[in-house]
């Protein structure tokens, strides 16, 4: 309701307008036009949606040369608005000095915001293209390192996308 616009009341409509016929015709025209355009719907689950690299699927940990990149700094855990991430650090003889002896994401808490990916100083946690998450209990929804680790190969598209948009 703009301050300049005249308020139209039902009693002000013409008979032609009151019949709704022009509106119905407009709608039908749109429907018929769409019928002959290419379709975007997918016959899920027979057909699978393949997201673009910019898609924010479930967060995963990047594994490079057999080890996780993560240094267990806990910044993702701190920034996560949903408190989904728990990291426990420990010492490793590798050059990076620390690594996550435990890394858990509670996928019931995660809201796919991507803040963890954004804050990570090591590009060790990234949003993947996986969107199918099914669990039958709260416990099952907590993903440990076994489910989180993905190789750089598997995450190639996303890592490339991040590089381009740095």
């Amino acid at each position: 309701m703009g301050s300049t616009g005249k308020i139209i009341r039902k009693k002000d409509l013409s008979i032609w307008q009151k019949s709704y016929i022009p509106e119905i015709v407009k709608g039908l025209r749109q429907t018929i036009a769409e019928m002959f355009k290419p379709k975007f719907t997918i016959q899920y689950p027979e057909e699978r949606f393949k997201p673009q690299p910019s898609f924010r699927g479930r967060p995963v940990l990047v594994q490079e040369n057999e080890v996780e990149r993560c240094v267990a700094c806990g910044l993702c855990s701190r920034v996560c608005p949903a408190l989904a991430i728990e990291v426990q650090a420990s010492e490793t003889p590798l050059e990076k000095e620390r690594y996550p002896i435990k890394f858990e994401i509670n996928m019931v808490r995660c809201i796919f915001c991507g803040f963890c990916e954004e804050v990570c100083p090591e590009e060790a946690i990234v949003m993947s293209n996986e969107y199918e998450l099914v669990f039958s209990s709260q416990e099952e929804a907590v993903f440990g390192k076994d489910k989180l680790l993905k190789t750089t190969e598997e995450l190639k598209d996303r890592l490339e996308f991040l590089r381009q948009n740095r």
Partner: peptide, 13 residues
């Protein structure tokens, strides 16, 4: 701590 404030019974942490 922040953890203490927001933990629910479903959180392992």
């Amino acid at each position: 701590s922040r953890w203490d404030k927001f933990a629910s019974q479903n959180d392992r942490w």
